Amino acid sequence: MGTSTLSRFQRGALAQLVSEGHHTYQDMADALGVAKSTISYELDRVKPYDPELAQQDADHKRRACGRHSILTPSLTILITNHLRLTWSPEAIATAFNLSTASIYNWLKLGWLPFNLADLPNRNVRQRRANEHRGTFTSGTSIEQRPKSVNQRLAFGHWEVDTVLSSRGQSQACLVTFVERKTRLLWAIKAPNRTAKALNDTFGKFMGTFGSQVKSITVDHGKEFADYRSIEQDYQIKVYFCHPYSP
């Protein structure tokens, strides 16, 4: 019956009915041509009822409609952790299906606890183009990964990468494990980016998550060259992303 919102005129009329003091909610709803629940909601949100304050509140909510940020606390942690691992906003946006412009805006607004001046100077494609760690070409392509993994429906599908210090003064690196559904980030320090060091680090990771790991996706860096051992030892599938994908 009627509308679910009131006009400025209806709010003025409602104030008059309320001031008379003897009308039920249903009486007022019938008089204004709206649902009883509309009257109940209107009077509950502004006490004592003031039609001007009610109109201002309604106008404010209407202007704010659709402006809610997608930057949740968990997403803030995810982005900040990757920025601290020297990922660029471009790489983060690509990896987690976000807008690069939004990440830069959140940084400028101070919504992310990270200094804009501390961003890496080059994006992930440029960094990797200058790497000299070597690559290989075997392995199962990401194109063969089940489509359900892309839909992020189940926990247990992880993307693994290695991150060097931007200063380049150490062979040590961080091995990062990102779970696709929850975007949980797990990082373990490795002494270098050799296949042996990677496999040792992966063993530590499996010691924590074990049966919760259903598949992993990596790139063709040589630290992942011994991927067959991972598949055989832990009975999980390893997929390889396209060159220069973060």
Results as ranks from 00 to 15, higher is better:
Pro89Glu: 05
Ala91Gly: 13
Ala93Met: 11
Ala93Pro: 10
Thr94Arg: 07
Thr94Tyr: 02
Ala95Gln: 02
Leu98Ser: 06
Leu98Thr: 02
Leu98Pro: 04
Ser102Trp: 06
Ser102Pro: 06
Ser102Ile: 05
Ser102Gly: 08
Ile103Lys: 02
Ile103Ala: 05
Tyr104Lys: 05
Tyr104Ile: 04
Tyr104Pro: 02
Trp106Asp: 05
Gly110Leu: 08
Trp111Tyr: 08
Leu112Gly: 03
Leu112Ser: 02
Asn115Glu: 12
Leu116Arg: 06
Ala117His: 10
Ala117Tyr: 09
Asp118Ser: 15
Asp118Val: 12
Asp118Ala: 14
Pro120Ile: 15
Asn121Phe: 05
Arg122Ala: 08
Val124Glu: 11
Val124Phe: 14
Arg125Ser: 03
Arg125Gln: 06
Gln126Trp: 05
Gln126Leu: 06
Gln126Asn: 05
Arg127Val: 11
Arg128Ser: 14
Arg128Phe: 15
Ala129Tyr: 07
Ala129Pro: 00
Asn130Arg: 13
His132Glu: 08
His132Pro: 02
His132Gln: 10
Arg133His: 07
Arg133Lys: 09
Gly134Ser: 14
Thr135Phe: 00
Thr135Arg: 01
Ser138Asp: 12
Gly139Leu: 05
Ile142Asn: 03
Ile142Cys: 08
Glu143Leu: 13
Gln144Lys: 13
Arg145Phe: 15
Arg145Glu: 15
Pro146Cys: 06
Pro146Ser: 05
Lys147Gly: 14
Ser148Arg: 09
Ser148Thr: 09
Asn150Val: 15
Gln151Glu: 15
Arg152Gln: 10
Leu153Ala: 11
Ala154Met: 03
Phe155Cys: 04
Phe155Asp: 04
Phe155Pro: 01
Gly156Asn: 12
His157Asp: 12
Trp158Cys: 01
Trp158Met: 02
Trp158His: 01
Trp158Tyr: 04
Glu159Lys: 06
Asp161Thr: 08
Val163Phe: 10
Val163Gly: 08
Leu164Arg: 08
Ser166Ile: 08
Arg167Thr: 06
Gln169Asp: 14
Ser170Phe: 10
Gln171Pro: 09
Gln171Lys: 15
Leu174Gly: 08
Val175Phe: 00
Val175Gly: 00
Val175Cys: 04
Thr176Tyr: 02
Thr176Asn: 00
Glu179Val: 11
Arg180Ile: 11
Lys181Pro: 02
Thr182Arg: 07
Arg183Glu: 09
Leu185Val: 15
Ala190Tyr: 02
Arg193Leu: 10
Arg193Gly: 03
Thr194Ser: 13
Thr194Val: 06
Ala195Asn: 00
Lys196Val: 07
Ala197His: 03
Ala197Cys: 03
Leu198Asn: 00
Asn199Lys: 14
Asn199Trp: 12
Asp200Asn: 14
Asp200Trp: 08
Phe202Lys: 00
